[in-house]
Write a protein that binds this DNA or RNA. Structure first.
Lengths: 318, 318
DNA sequence: CTGTTAGCGCATTCAC
DNA sequence: GTGAATGCGCTAACAG
């Protein structure tokens, strides 16, 4: 690869002039400008970004550490992020990590000048990070105050879900949710929506402990006559996919008898009817992240919560 | 971030000594070695990899340009690649590209010193690349001789598939394959296996034009009585998933009446019975790639073909 | 308008 | 053993 010295020599000007032509390009005599351009073209010269990085103390590389177990979700993140990053002339440096130790070691390797900032995505284990240049995205909240994090607004999701279901005439809403970090938030939103709609809270409709969703649903089904529930809130699309056949096995139609609602991601598989759901736009989230990275000096991210979109199944006949 | 100057000052030695301690560490007086280590620890100093890169003329970054349309396949590639790359102290720089222009532009941005080598994965459009540092992985073959490429051995896959099916007593093997770049290879392997088993080639069993697989299968089904086929070779798992319900709709049992074989990837979804298939090990492929990257100077990759593994469904009762 | 100089952070000479 | 000097490729400041 040719360097700026080769170009300056061939063009018969100094390195500085070459640099000027390629960057600002202002205040250069047309003759030498042309000479430089010609030499650049002949040598197929392109400035070495590493040398530029050394000078500017920034590489334009953003590390992305994926700690996500849901592989499909990961791809959606990556695709959206890369799209926005490359639009801002930034590069996405990818790592996978499955434990706190792996995340920390990856962080170590990336923050030695290689990456300007690092995102950690989807960690389900607590992380104790105190670095201005690290953003936790969809990670469990840690005890220490992490400077920058982005989370899903689970309370908002649950509240929206309940309000939608109630608007559809479903007033007996069951809730099955694993005891994750989001559980408290979900319950909060659930209760809030019930309150606002003057509906009583029935403890028997809610399952938030560690029992499997299958068992939880079976308890609901066994007591179906007394509970009389006509809607079911589940954590995500995978749960929904598991739960619907079980309902159908007990002659419950979906959504006729029971309307199933996914609190994270809907079902788009061909042949399977779509269910109402909250969906988080990866694209919007990526846009938010990249925007913040670009104007980092001016603002503080803090603990940002993104709200999901309500997705309603298309009931029109085709 | 502290630099080597800060360390040398605090330790009371020269930069050279600091560098020696952190690299070779040989031929340094124990006293100054300790002093350096202490200063390093106090300042939390870590050598700037960008400065090292400028000196060594290599960054340890490997660009990966994904041109794959199959998003699941992409994730499998990325996961395997990243795992092997990080084991070799290399970094994976990710880009997505959907056209030749996008690939070329990405290539331009990555080969200005940022990446030592670049992989292009899954491009379904012809690429004309003449760069020693670029490897085409699972891309359509280009007219010009690309220095380095890795492809799937589709002929071997088809041959293996036929031999397996024949060993299972299936002698009337239909073949539905889109008219892709791999089509010729597939047909080659198909014919070879038939020949070797002294079976006639029946043109009516083979569909390799651009008609949809659904239509092709319907033609087969309409002529089922005369064709009497008892096995069906399809391009990949998605095709298999589309084709099986169609067969069942016409009262053909799978694999009872018709044994469906996927030439690329099997079905592992819960509830759906696994079918025999050829599977390409992403892990093995990633290992091959990274091994070559590490000893690039010694050997030439050329045009390497990986052969897939035969996956046989588990017929044991659980 | 343009050339010279200095320095980004580091590792590798070469003297002492 | 160790320190001073050199240069990787580039840009910014300063002189002309």
């Amino acid at each position: 690869m040719s360097t700026i010295n080769d170009v300056s020599r061939l063009a018969g000007v100094s390195k500085a002039t070459v640099s000027r032509v390629l960057s600002g390009s202002r205040g250069v005599k047309e003759a030498s400008r042309l000479a430089v351009l010609k030499a650049v073209d002949e040598l197929n010269y392109r400035p070495n970004v590493i040398a530029q990085s050394l000078l500017s103390q920034s590489t334009g590389c953003i590390g992305v550490i994926c700690a996500q177990d849901n592989i499909n979700q990961t791809t959606a993140y990556l695709y959206a992020l890369e799209k926005h990053l490359s639009q801002s002339q930034k590069h996405l440096l990818l790592r996978f990590a499955n434990s706190k130790a792996e995340v920390m070691s990856a962080l170590d390797e990336l923050t030695c000048g290689l990456c300007d900032d690092v995102l950690v995505i989807g960690a389900r284990f607590p992380l104790h990070i105190d670095d201005e240049n690290v953003i936790l995205v969809d990670c469990v909240e840690s005890a220490t105050t992490t400077p920058n994090s982005i989370q899903f607004d689970h309370a908002f999701a649950a509240e929206t879900a309940c309000n939608y279901l109630i608007s559809q005439g479903r007033r007996q809403i069951a809730l099955i949710h694993p005891n994750s970090a989001a559980a408290d938030q979900v319950l909060l939103g659930y209760k809030l929506a019930l309150e606002n709609n003057f509906l009583p809270f029935n403890r028997n409709l809610v399952f938030m402990d560690d029992t499997s969703s299958s068992v939880a649903l079976q308890v609901l089904l066994n007591n179906a006559t007394t509970l009389n529930f006509n809607a079911l809130l589940v954590a995500d699309e995978q749960e929904a996919q598991r739960v619907i056949p079980q309902l159908q096995a007990f002659n419950k139609t979906v959504p006729g008898d029971i309307m199933v609602f996914s609190l994270a991601g809907s079902l788009h598989l061909p042949g399977i009817p779509t269910i109402p759901a909250i969906e988080y736009s990866m694209d919007a989230m990526a846009a938010k992240i990249v925007a913040w990275l670009n104007e980092k000096t001016q603002s503080v991210l803090g603990s940002y919560r993104v709200r999901g979109d309500l997705i309603i199944p298309d009931v029109r006949k085709r």
